[in-house]
Write a protein that binds this DNA or RNA. Structure first.
Lengths: 200, 200
DNA sequence: CAAATAGGGTACGACGCGTACCCTGATAAG
DNA sequence: CTTATCAGGGTACGCGTCGTACCCTATTTG
């Protein structure tokens, strides 16, 4: 009896990660169990523990799998257009049923696991900050904002506020008008006011 | 044999909550177990479950116990002084070994518990926002910033950024120069530039 | 073809949650 | 003062999950 051939290496790894994604979608991080992941992937816990040391690492790996490739910075021609697109992209991203919950839960789990926290920081938090600097650089080149706008803390204010909204509100999705408010009431005024001269 | 008289009601409740605080300090939220809390408080799980439905609710109650009474808004005479004091107060607060970790863990646990999230929002997140509005109101009265500065989203930008720093960095304490940067590079310029009209 | 490796199946110990009982000390009611 | 009521103490237990251990089997490598 041949049956399906036994999966190995990358193929099996993919099957496991997608099982994790499905489980996270249905039951959330709190309801994620190693046994069920193994069952759903049609394998057993051996194969999982051989690859990831614990539940948190497994969930983080699944998260990365889900995120996939890096994004390209948008280029709409105006700073506001680029910024709104970045923010809407991040919001659409975080409002996937799985992502927001998982990220929150992982941040919580990382409270007692510095190693996990470091990985989270790299792959979730800092991953996108280059996009913002790129977009700002173009805006400076166009003369939309003064060069002083390019300052790491200033550049990431918008995404930091969005993230804050997620973490503290516990919502599954942030309404678009909140994004607009962040951009028009906070972010753009801040960038334009970085130098004494303002307003176009 | 008399022994110590049996504790009841509020007295016992205090003993339990302080046992939770000690356990959180030593082992963190992940290491907090009901059995150990009961043992440490010199009681048993009955007395705990009679008061709180689960571990998360217990930890939240301990957190509130630890926070204690509400703070008074500072009044240093300048906006920058008040703002720095609010931010330093919050930072000192969150950098207690227990608080930061516990809040992060609770936010994570709340990912699957809307009820807990609501309570957290009320008692942790929104609790202090009145202070910021008060301080801003005084600054407007002094003519330091335009009245448009009094806008909920704008007013809480500084504390939102601090919180973001905590949640995403996983640090136990945010250095003072980060606070200064938040205030001088972001918050005050934003408030002072509020009069600039916004494009839409 | 043999040896090494990775996967499958399964069982197990440890641990913690939340519940259930029954007993005892303290308080409230008669 | 006596008795009923109730909160607390002590303890045990079922359940679920983690992480590990073993042994067997399929696949790949030499």
């Amino acid at each position: 009896m041949a049956g399906p051939p036994r999966r190995r290496g990358a193929e099996l790894e993919q099957a496991i990660l997608h099982a994790v994604i499905d489980e996270l979608t249905e039951a959330g991080y709190a309801g994620l169990t190693m046994d069920r992941v193994a069952a759903r992937a049609g394998t057993n816990k051996n194969a999982i523990y051989r690859r990831w040391p614990n539940r948190a690492a497994l969930a983080l790996a699944a998260y990365r799998e889900l995120i996939g490739a890096d994004r390209e910075p948008p280029d709409t021609g105006t700073l506001r257009g680029d910024v709104m697109e970045l923010l809407r992209g991040a919001n659409g991203h975080l409002s996937t049923p799985i992502i927001g919950r998982t990220v929150r839960a992982l941040l919580g789990a990382a409270a007692d696991d510095p190693d996990l926290m470091a990985q989270l920081r790299d792959s979730v938090i800092d991953a996108g900050s280059g996009l913002w600097l790129t977009v700002l650089g173009r805006a400076v080149a166009r003369g939309e904002v003064p060069p002083e706008a390019i300052h790491p803390r200033v550049a990431t204010v918008a995404i930091a506020l969005l993230r804050n909204e997620y973490v503290t509100r516990g919502t599954t999705s942030v309404p678009d008008d909140v994004l607009v408010e962040i951009v028009d009431e906070v972010y753009l005024p801040l960038l334009r006011g970085r130098h004494a001269t303002v307003v176009d």
